[in-house]
Design a protein around this nucleic acid. Structure first.
Lengths: 134, 134
DNA sequence: AAATAAAGGACTAATTAGGTCGTATATATG
DNA sequence: CATATATACGACCTAATTAGTCCTTTATTT
């Protein structure tokens, strides 16, 4: 259950490396994947998610790569998780909206309490809190 | 990723129902599974885990069932998760001990930070915080 | 003795996560 | 302008985990 997926893991590795490299320089998927022994294709897709969400900016062509677009301090971990896992991958499901089994209210509550706790916590942690190296 | 599994969910349902029924009375798996539309066998196994961990006490035979053995206030959610999911199901893995890929320290840190945050939070939440109905 | 309830092992099905492949598109540079 | 390099993206496959089922055993009440 409460486990960090590879995609999240890889994204965090990439971002912290990009933070080290500085805001100006471009970092390519190839670089990151080789240096950290991460499957190229998988990391590439993960970076594409971050680019689509405008966390990073993509520059195509030779000498291209990614650079940070938003300040990691301004990104909540909840947002970050949802970008990578999708809105349903992170909490909520199982008992919300599209639950076919209608059970008593006393049942929804315990799960909601856990979900709320986790969600609340990650709403107060920024991406920078996790990726900063200092 | 950060999702509650069915087994945890079912265990929470069972425990909160047992709390409602009071410390003395016995609640059977059949009762709980029927009233909440939970697969009998799966719930049964989950209860067996709780019995083995002495969270609940089992009474065999007709009119038998389970009753609370420990005070839910004294059980940390981390402990509870580990009883049901096993020690590795809840955090830690992926990057600890038995990780074959040795990566730079700058990589372990981000994941550890998340793990620590979650673990720390659930160390300070008791089972009763989740299952109490009042 | 019969019915009932937990204990537990073996197995199957379903879902999710992890990883690969092929192709398209943009762009820097000789 | 051709080529090499880098991102974009959809389709697909495989491995791992979760969820659920089935069957047998053991204890205990009536």
């Amino acid at each position: 259950m409460l486990k960090i997926t590879r995609k999240v893991e890889y994204a965090l590795i990439a971002l912290s490396q990009m933070q080290l490299n500085g805001d100006e320089s471009l970092t390519s998927v190839k670089e990151i994947s080789q240096q950290n022994d991460i499957p190229y294709e998988l990391l590439a897709k993960t970076m594409q998610l971050l680019a689509k969400a405008e966390i990073v900016e993509a520059v195509k062509g030779p000498q291209g790569g990614y650079r940070l677009k938003k300040d990691p301090t301004d990104i909540k971990m909840t947002t970050f998780f949802e970008i990578i896992e999708g809105p349903m991958g992170f909490m909520d499901c199982s008992f919300d909206s599209n639950c076919h089994q209608i059970r008593s209210c006393s049942i929804r509550t315990p799960i909601q309490r856990i979900n709320d706790s986790i969600r609340n916590m990650f709403n107060n942690i920024s991406l920078n809190d996790i990726t900063r190296t200092t």
